[in-house]
Computed example of a mutant assay.
Amino acid sequence: MDTKDFYIRKARVQDVETIHKSIMVCAKDGLMLPRAFTDLYSHMRDHYVIAPREGQGPIKGCCALSLCWKDYAEVRSLMVDEDMRGRGWGKRLVEACLSEALTLGFYKVFTLTYQVDFFHSLGFEEVDKNELPQKVWSDCIHCAKFPNCDETAMLIEL
């Protein structure tokens, strides 16, 4: 599969089922936490996807920028299909989110991740989850893993 046959664009409603299926596969493999359909539909505009240029075939990855509070935004739900990994698509998806964060005036972007080395390579640094109290009390408190979260909190200041 040639990478020039794909590009990054904002998600569309017809992408949500594929995004959900892909996230659930990654969640089953322990790479990320699952997301509900209702969450994906209500936050569809947050997502970028790797889409085929000719419009034929499914999307091959996604990443979302969630606006949290004041000057904080979150990169979440990063997923790249196995056959597209190692080609820079994950980096491009995160960069699209970071660019949007800057455009909107959000200069602190965090993530909760199992992929620490990947996010380190993009300039994110590990932080204590206590630095993200709004995230913990708005989202994390509803997670099945709370209060024993095993994800690593990371932050980049733009």
Rank of each mutant, 00 (worst) to 15 (best):
D128A: 09
E131M: 10
L65T: 11
L104N: 05
L112F: 02
G86A: 03
T3V: 15
E151V: 01
S42I: 04
M44F: 06
L40I: 13
V16M: 15
S99K: 14
A36E: 14
G123V: 02
I23E: 08
E126M: 07
Y41C: 08
K4G: 07
C149R: 12
R85A: 04
R76T: 13
D128E: 08
V109M: 04
E151F: 01
S121K: 04
G90F: 00
S121R: 01
L122V: 07
V25N: 07
S77L: 04
E125N: 13
R53H: 07
S66D: 11
F124R: 01
E126K: 11
K129Y: 09
V80E: 06
M84K: 00
M79G: 01
M32C: 13
M154N: 06
P147Q: 09
V116N: 01
A153F: 05
T38E: 15
R9A: 04
C26F: 12
K60A: 13
L122K: 04
L65A: 12
L102H: 09
I59D: 11
L98G: 03
V116S: 02
F124P: 01
R12E: 15
E157D: 07
G30E: 03
A101N: 03
R76V: 10
E54L: 04
M1H: 11
K145S: 14
V25H: 03
Q115V: 00
G30Q: 05
I23Y: 04
H20V: 08
A51C: 06
T3Y: 11
H142S: 14
K91W: 00
T113P: 02
E131H: 05
L93S: 03
L112Q: 00
L104W: 06
G86E: 02
Y41R: 14
K21M: 12
S22I: 09
R9K: 12
L67P: 02
F6N: 10
K21F: 11
Y107I: 06
A11D: 13
C68W: 06
E100I: 03
E131F: 09
H120C: 03
I50G: 09
Y7R: 11
L65Q: 05
F124A: 05
C149H: 10
V75K: 02
R12Y: 08
I156F: 07
D150R: 13
S138D: 13
R92F: 01
T38Q: 15
K135W: 12
K70P: 06
H142I: 12
F118K: 00
S22G: 14
T103N: 10
E95W: 05
C62H: 12
P52K: 01
R45A: 11
F118E: 00
G61A: 12
K135A: 12
D128M: 09
H142T: 14
R35S: 08
F37D: 11
C62S: 15
E100Y: 04
L31F: 05
E54R: 06
K145Q: 13
A144M: 14
L155S: 06
K21H: 15
R92E: 12
H120N: 06
A51Q: 11
S138C: 05
C143W: 15
